[in-house]
Simulated assay, not measured.
Amino acid sequence: MSTPYLCPNCKTNRTRFNIIEQQAKSVKLDPQTGVIIEELEQSSLDPFHITYNGPHYKVQCGVCGLIENELSFIKRAQLKS
């Protein structure tokens, strides 16, 4: 995270960002009510439950509110360097 950012939407913000750390929780829901029946450990997932493999961080622009993958903000800053 020691890389410059530039918002790909407003294209002016280089300093105000919210770093959103994503922590996935695997659960089984009741199909009728949507209530969580069981929280699953990564080691005990059944064959039909895929583990989360998305980004660890998302970034929100503190000026326009855009939320994207961190790489979008990094790439935009590299283009404008």
Rank of each mutant, 00 (worst) to 15 (best):
F73Q: 06
E21S: 08
Q23C: 01
E39V: 12
P55T: 08
F73A: 09
L79E: 14
D46E: 13
E68K: 07
Y5A: 12
Q23W: 01
H49N: 02
C7I: 07
Q23L: 09
M1A: 14
H56P: 05
I67E: 07
P31C: 00
F73R: 00
L29I: 01
S2T: 02
F73Y: 08
T33M: 04
K80Q: 14
F73E: 11
S43N: 08
K11N: 03
K58C: 01
E38F: 04
S81T: 04
A24N: 13
L79W: 03
L79N: 03
N18Y: 03
K25I: 14
I37E: 15
D46I: 07
Q23G: 01
H56F: 12
C64Q: 10
I50E: 15
E21F: 08
L45Y: 07
M1L: 15
T15S: 14
E70W: 04
S43A: 15
E41S: 09
C10Y: 11
N13S: 14
E68W: 05
S72G: 04
Y5L: 15
G54F: 00
F73L: 03
T33H: 01
G65H: 12
G65N: 13
V59D: 02
A77M: 15
V35A: 14
N53L: 06
C10E: 07
Q78D: 11
N18C: 03
C7P: 00
L29V: 11
D30G: 00
K75A: 10
